[in-house]
Computed example of a mutant assay.
Amino acid sequence: EDGAMVFYPPKERKKGESFNIVSRQDYTNFILSLEWRVAEGANSGIFWGVKEDPTYGQPYETGPEIQVLDNARHPDAKAGDTHQAGALYDMVAPSQDVTKPAGEWNTCVITVNYEEQQGMVNLNGVDIVTFPLGNKEWDALVSQSKFAGWSGFGKFHTGKIGLQDHGDVVAYRNIRIKKL
Rank of each mutant, 00 (worst) to 15 (best):
E1L: 11
E1W: 09
A4S: 14
A4P: 13
F7I: 10
P9W: 07
P9Y: 03
P10Q: 04
E12M: 07
E12F: 05
R13V: 12
K14P: 08
K14M: 08
S18V: 10
F19D: 04
N20C: 03
I21W: 10
V22M: 02
S23L: 01
R24S: 05
R24E: 10
D26N: 15
Y27R: 05
N29H: 04
I31K: 12
I31E: 13
S33M: 04
E35T: 00
R37G: 03
V38W: 02
A39Y: 00
A39Q: 09
G41H: 11
G41V: 13
G41W: 10
A42S: 13
A42D: 06
S44G: 06
I46K: 08
W48K: 01
W48V: 05
G49M: 08
V50K: 02
K51T: 08
K51H: 08
E52T: 06
D53H: 13
T55H: 15
Y56R: 07
G57T: 14
Q58P: 02
Q58A: 12
Q58D: 15
P59K: 02
Y60F: 13
T62I: 02
T62M: 01
P64K: 00
E65S: 06
E65F: 02
Q67W: 05
H74S: 03
P75Q: 05
P75S: 11
D76G: 10
A77P: 09
K78Q: 14
G80F: 02
D81Q: 06
T82N: 08
T82F: 03
H83M: 02
H83Y: 12
Q84C: 14
G86K: 08
A87Y: 09
Y89V: 11
A93E: 03
A93W: 00
A93N: 02
D97T: 04
D97E: 04
T99M: 01
P101K: 04
A102P: 06
G103C: 04
G103Y: 00
W105V: 03
W105P: 11
T107N: 06
V109Q: 12
T111L: 15
V112T: 09
E115D: 11
E116Y: 08
Q117E: 15
Q118S: 15
Q118M: 15
G119Q: 09
M120E: 15
M120Q: 15
N124R: 13
G125N: 06
V126P: 11
V126R: 11
T130E: 10
F131A: 01
P132M: 14
L133H: 07
G134V: 06
G134P: 09
K136S: 14
K136D: 15
K136R: 08
E137P: 05
W138K: 12
W138N: 09
A140W: 00
A140C: 01
L141V: 00
S143E: 09
S145Y: 05
F147G: 01
A148I: 08
A148N: 12
W150Q: 09
W150D: 02
S151M: 04
G152T: 02
F153S: 00
H157N: 14
H157P: 12
G159N: 06
K160R: 13
K160N: 12
I161E: 05
G162M: 03
L163W: 01
L163T: 01
L163A: 08
L163K: 03
Q164D: 00
D165S: 05
G167S: 01
G167Q: 01
G167E: 04
D168H: 08
V169I: 15
V170S: 13
A171E: 14
Y172S: 13
I177L: 14
K178H: 10
